[in-house]
């Protein structure tokens, strides 16, 4: 119940017009802070739904694959420049952002993560590492303005944000590849 309340509070706080405005005024904060925070809010809310409707998740997300597919589709959708622009220009898209990221990305992520197993999880991380490198390269190298609402410098910064995050993922992958936990635990 606490997690549900914290998650709902986060969504309401992030949706407050001054908070949303300041976060959306900087491209990278919009994509790399507001959106992940909405996913985290959904992640917290997930527990409530898992306890309330265990049968639903068991039936539709037994091995975690459908959930993680939904997560990947929703997150990939929101990494596109066009969708960010539309969220800023159209109220309907903005509402969809605040609903889709917690409910269609956060909740399935939590439900799928444990079901996926070690290999499945690492595949997802590798996938996102590649995606982040590609998106980073796109945003850093694009010679034109990709979003009507943001300057070229904003998109280059976002690109570097993608690249540095991808580097952190690579460090993580290196860590799990080279450090054998059974030596210590």
């Amino acid at each position: 119940m606490t997690q549900l309340l914290v998650g709902l509070f986060m969504i309401i706080f992030l949706a407050l017009p001054p908070v949303a405005k300041i976060m959306e005024s900087v491209m990278i904060i919009h994509m790399h802070m507001q959106m992940p925070m909405l996913i985290i809010a959904g992640f917290l809310i997930a527990k409530f739904f898992q306890e309330r409707y265990p049968g639903f998740f068991e039936k539709w997300n037994r091995n975690g694959l459908p959930g993680i597919m939904l997560f990947i589709i929703i997150v990939s959708f929101w990494t596109l420049p066009r969708t960010m622009d539309e969220a800023l220009n159209e109220a309907g898209m903005e509402i969809f952002k605040f609903i889709s990221l917690p409910l269609l990305a956060g909740i399935p992520l939590r439900d799928s993560w444990k079901r996926l197993g070690k290999i499945g999880r690492n595949v997802v991380i590798i996938l996102f590492t590649i995606l982040f490198f590609v998106m980073g390269w796109l945003y850093v190298d694009a010679p034109v303005q990709l979003c009507n609402n943001y300057l070229v410098i904003d998109q280059i910064i976002l690109g570097w944000g993608f690249l540095t995050t991808a580097i952190c993922f690579v460090i993580y992958l290196g860590y799990i590849l080279f450090v054998d936990p059974s030596k210590y635990e």
């Binding site: 802070m33 910064i157 570097w160």
Partner: peptide, 15 residues
């Protein structure tokens, strides 16, 4: 920690 550092410094340093 590294992700937090990357998030915090990517904006000012790039600019």
């Amino acid at each position: 920690m590294l992700i937090v550092v990357a998030m915090a410094y990517v904006i000012p340093l790039s600019e």
